[in-house]
Structure formats: C-alpha cells, structure tokens
Simulated scan of single mutants.
Amino acid sequence: KKNANMLNNKSKLSLGFVKTITINSNDNYDVIIGKNNNFNKQNKEFKDKYVKVVVQDPYNNRDIILKVTKKQKGVYIWETLEGKNMYVGHSINLYNRISTYFMPSILNTKARKVLRHLNKHGFSDIKLIIYIMDIKSSLDQVVSLQQHVIDTLNPSINVDLVASSSGYHQPVAQEIRKKLRKQTGTPVYIYEAERFTLLHIFDSKQYMYNTISIHHKTLHDCIDLGVLYLDSFFLSLDLLETENVYMLNLDQIKALVKTKRELHKLKHPASKAIFAEFKNDASKNLEFDSLNGLAKHLKGNCKVIREYIQGIKSGYYRGKWKFTYKKKQHIKQL
C-alpha cells in the first residue's frame, strides 16, 4: 500500500509537486527510483528530479531503508514527530550513510549534535524523510538540493547551515578537499569504526583492490550495505562529519589492514570443506571449500543443505547428492 503524504507546514519545501510515498512496516515498499513523473518542470527554483520517501519508525524498518536507498543518491532528513527538531544531510550512497546512524559504536561517540540527539532520545519519536535523486545526478546537484532544504527548513540540529561542510573541523575538511581535487576517480574513505576516525582516503575502488587486496564483493558489501570491513573499518564514498581525523600514509594503512586481517582470521576460522558425493556416479563427485560455495554451485538453500550435512534430513539431497565434511587441505579449488 502506498499512501500520498504531505509534510507538516513547517516541513513543506517549495520544490514543485513531487511524488511522496509514506512507508510503514506493513506496506508494499516497491519504489521506482529516479523517475518522478509528477515533477513540476516549471519550477525555476530547483529543477533536478527526485522521489520523496517517508519512513516511519526507521529503526525497525531498516530493511525498507535498504531496499529504497541502496546505491542511491540524495538528501535525508531526521525529523522528530512533532516537527520541532530536524537534521538535514546528503550522500552519494544513501544507505551506507544512513546506516551509520544505527551503529552503536558511532552513536556512542556523540561526536556531533545529531548523534548526541539520537543517542539521548533514540529513534522512537523520529521519522526519516528521504529525497532520492536521479542516479545520474552529480555531487554538486545533491549538495545543491541539501542546501535548498537547509535554507527552507532552517534545521535546529544542523550545527553548520552550509551544505557539505564538516561542522566543527571545517579547516581539516578543506585540507582534505584540496587533496581530493587532484584525484580523478571516486575516492573511498576508510574510518576506524570504534571511534569513527578518518584514517585514509583511497583514490578509487580499483586502487583499494590493488593496494590492500580487498575482494571486490567485500568492498561492494561494505559500501552498499554498511558492513564493517574486517570488523574494524567503515568504508564510505562520502566524506563524513567527524571530529576524529588521524590520517595514515599508504604504508601505515596497509600495515594496519594486514594486522586486522590476521586478527580477523583468528576470530573467524576458515569454513569446513565439504565433499559432495553424486549418487551412483563417482565421476561427478565434487569438493567445496565452504557451505556457501556448495550452495551457490547447486543453486540451493544453505539452511536445507546444512540439515542434510548434519543428518537432520535423511537420504540424498534432491535425490542425487550426499554431503560430508572434509579437512580443508584436501580441497581441490573450483
């Protein structure tokens, strides 16, 4: 169910007539991104397309936020239900950015006014308003929309009313931006998650692949889903507001990642190898280095396959396969 919803008078924006979708946990939340047929092309004040999404009870609707903001650009507003307090931010990777507000390690830093507010009051009396722009929108266009929203709403929780500024540490931000102007790719920022400290800026995703040997799927999960890299680092395409900046050179960040990777291996030992025996035809037997690898190859469900391995389910999987664990060193890579 999709319901048209208007913001209260204090929150109305003169951005033309836009399609507004209010989402609750029981709603069907399929949203077409980047195609706003109701956009008023005669609006001279702001011309870029967007879809407005209002998420009630955002903490318990994080799955909805993921679905509508993954790999999207735009502006977000935290607004208390009575409309008294608001914070306006922007991102070229909305879910990655919004997910940081739900991370206890970041909330507990209380480094910024918005974090102190959420840490003190929680998410029970707040809603999340998202303006999702066309995926082809430039960073300048996203920042321009944020500035327009700030100028219109005069949000009480924003410390700095200049879009894209870094609040308390604007000189540091300017120094970093000067460095970024020399880069040609899309930079990737790496933060220490416990204190939300900016550690290094990689020139591009490819540069990260080449220098710290991060797998491309791992990098995408970290950036798109907000997964912590090696349980220690938060990766972002945005320069986020933080009081903590401790820039490491390339050799230092490589050494730190190497140390964290070794600790991560100790905490997360390698998966057990699995021998897959094909019924009545040994030539089709296979070996896999993990349950995920087996499930992916057979296009099956991990939970169901695990039940066959553990003996919870008897017989042959799909009438063909029998699975047993093997020692890792005997695996033939597929």
Rank of each mutant, 00 (worst) to 15 (best):
I309T: 13
R306V: 01
K279P: 02
H264Y: 15
S314W: 02
P269F: 08
K313I: 08
E287K: 12
A273V: 12
K303E: 10
K296C: 01
K272F: 05
R306I: 02
K303Y: 12
K265M: 09
N285T: 03
S271Q: 15
L256S: 07
F288M: 09
V257P: 02
H264M: 04
E262Q: 14
N285A: 07
K258Y: 08
L294E: 02
I274C: 06
T259R: 13
G311M: 09
A273D: 04
H264I: 01
S314C: 03
G311D: 04
L291R: 12
K258F: 08
K267L: 14
S314G: 06
E287P: 00
V257H: 03
K296G: 01
G300V: 08
Q310N: 15
L266T: 13
A273S: 15
K265G: 00
F278R: 10
L266H: 05
E262P: 01
E287A: 04
D289F: 08
E307Y: 11
K260A: 07
L266Y: 06
R306F: 11
S314V: 13
K284F: 06
K303L: 07
A282D: 10
D281I: 03
K279L: 14
L256C: 00
G293R: 05
E307T: 03
N301P: 04
K258C: 04
K260Q: 14
K279A: 06
L263Q: 14
G300L: 10
N292C: 01
I274W: 07
